[in-house]
Design a protein around this nucleic acid. Structure first.
Length: 449
RNA sequence: GCUGUGAUGGUGUAGGGGUUAGCACGGCAGAUUGUGGUUCUGCCAGCCCGAGUUCGAUUCUCGGUCACGGCCCCA
């Protein structure tokens, strides 16, 4: 028996209807916020991702060569392809800002476990051609709106701004340039040390860069601040106490948070956290992420922020952009766990198709008599299933019932003789004979619904 | 990259060195030749793969594969 490759999944009809409902729900929210869907290829040039993330990522890619030895790879994420598309399709000519949304599978070669697959699905958006606190607020508001709309509970959003700690560090005189022979700029080292809580290391780094190590303490205090919007007050006090440090980034974050509060539903938990660094150096401004604690180790379901990547494609004037990626599979896992915990049948709102199906059952007659009726009912918008196995009446009724039909239309020899069909509502048991044509049957079905 | 647990019909499970491998759901057929949901009967369908130990392995051992956890990582 040939098995599915590791880290991949099959989706049965029931699961798929859930996934489609979720995708449509996200799509609908994106649409309301003015975002339009795009799509890019599942495989791309290998260079696209090494340019963005460095050569080290190749080991985590499904990279391959085609028959002409072109270096290609299955895409590991969707932001870089979207950036590539903007440049390649000349989208810088479109009215700004661009609001783009996307959805598709991505591939990473890594250990798979629950919530972490080698083939996974990402929904995301990018707002391009406008930056600043209000653009950032629009992006966060959409993220919150989506999670709120899908019924997710008990999620935590953490919002930060890489400019605040970075600004404080450079304000103190720490360099953002990578020195000869080093692997990262001192600012990045300092951010990492702050994140880890390595006070001694930070003080040492300051000393070796000619900065008073006493400055480490207030920065540490800054990075440890935790709480809602009220956190910005103490942050402001600390930053004001440091000579040469700008408050611009903090003001921007304040503006963003105020706008989000007005634009989006109130999330179950919102925290300001200045150490949300999103590890990467292309993030330049606001950064945010969403976690669902009950998912455990793979609990981050969404992440995003402001970044500069379009300069890699010759469009520096479009930087910075702001966007987020939503872990489609992880949100679904969380929704499934929550639905089960609360005994809720429906996992994603709207996943169950409640439009009543119609089963057309030809009994002991040539099917050609009912085919035009099946076509006519379908043309009239009904969801019609034709009984194909020649079952006798009791079996056919049982079958119609088991696949969830609301109506049966039985046509047997007697009906043919009297030119009628028996239409039955399986839920009420109500039954009536109607003329044997799709218009009459359609009318009867609609009347009995 | 490190580490732990597990794998029995399609699904959920019981069992265990020699068994007709049990049960439930499911699918098919009949009871029931023009009306379903209940019930009854019968049938379908399984020990992940490879090597080893053994007279004999689905059961024990090792390896592989896959899944699920805990760290590391996560563009």
């Amino acid at each position: 028996m040939v098995q599915r490759p590791r880290g991949t999944r099959d989706f049965t009809p029931k699961v798929m209807s859930r996934r489609l409902a979720f995708e449509h729900l996200l799509e609908e929210r994106a649409r309301r916020h003015g975002f339009s869907r795009i799509q890019t290829p599942v495989f791309e040039s290998l260079d696209l991702f090494t340019a963005k993330s460095g050569p080290g990522i190749v080991s985590q890619l499904y990279a391959f060569e085609d028959k002409s030895e072109r270096p290609l790879t299955l895409r590991p994420e969707l932001t870089a392809p979207v950036m590539r598309m903007i440049a390649e399709e000349g989208m810088q000519m479109l009215p700004r800002p661009l609001r783009l949304s996307y959805y598709g599978q991505c591939y990473r070669y890594e250990e798979s476990k629950k919530g972490r697959y080698r083939e996974f699905f990402q929904y995301g958006v990018e707002l391009i051609g406008e930056s600043g606190p209000l653009a950032e607020a629009e992006v966060i508001a959409l993220a919150i709106d989506m999670l709120d709309a899908c019924g997710l509970e008990n999620w935590e959003i953490r919002i930060g701004h890489v400019g605040i700690l970075k600004g404080a560090l450079t304000g103190l005189g720490l360099s953002g340039e990578t020195p000869e022979g080093a692997t990262e700029p001192p600012v990045a080292s300092a951010m990492r040390l702050l994140d880890k809580g390595d006070d001694a290391g930070l003080a040492e780094l300051f000393s070796s860069n000619g900065i008073n190590p006493e400055n480490a303490a207030p920065l540490r205090a800054l990075s440890q601040l935790e709480g809602g919007r009220e956190t910005l007050g103490p942050a402001r006090e600390i930053l004001s106490s440091l000579a040469g440090v700008s408050l611009d980034a903090l003001d921007d974050l304040q503006t963003t948070l105020d706008a989000v509060a007005a634009l989006a539903p109130t999330p179950p938990s919102l925290a300001v956290d200045l150490t949300v660094a999103r590890g990467l150096d292309y993030y330049t401004g606001m950064v945010f992420e969403v976690k669902v604690p009950e998912l455990g180790g793979e609990g981050q379901v969404l992440g995003g922020g402001s970044y500069k990547l379009l300069h890699l494609f010759g469009l520096p004037d479009l930087d910075p952009c702001c966007g987020f990626g939503l872990g489609f599979d992880r949100v679904l896992l969380a929704l499934e766990a929550q639905a089960e915990a609360s005994g809720r049948e429906e996992v994603v709102p709207g996943e169950v198709d409640r439009s009543g199906r119609v089963a057309v059952i030809p009994f002991g007659i040539d099917v050609s008599h009912v085919l035009p009726i099946v076509a006519g009912l379908r043309a009239g918008g009904e969801r019609v299933e034709l009984e194909l196995r020649g079952r006798k009446i009791p079996k056919a009724m049982k079958w119609a019932n088991s696949i969830g039909c609301q109506f049966t239309v039985v046509v047997g020899p007697r009906d043919l003789e009297s030119n009628q069909a028996m239409v039955k509502n399986l839920e009420s048991g109500e039954q009536q004979a109607v003329a044997l044509n799709s218009e009459s049957i359609l009318k009867a079905v609609q009347a009995m619904r």
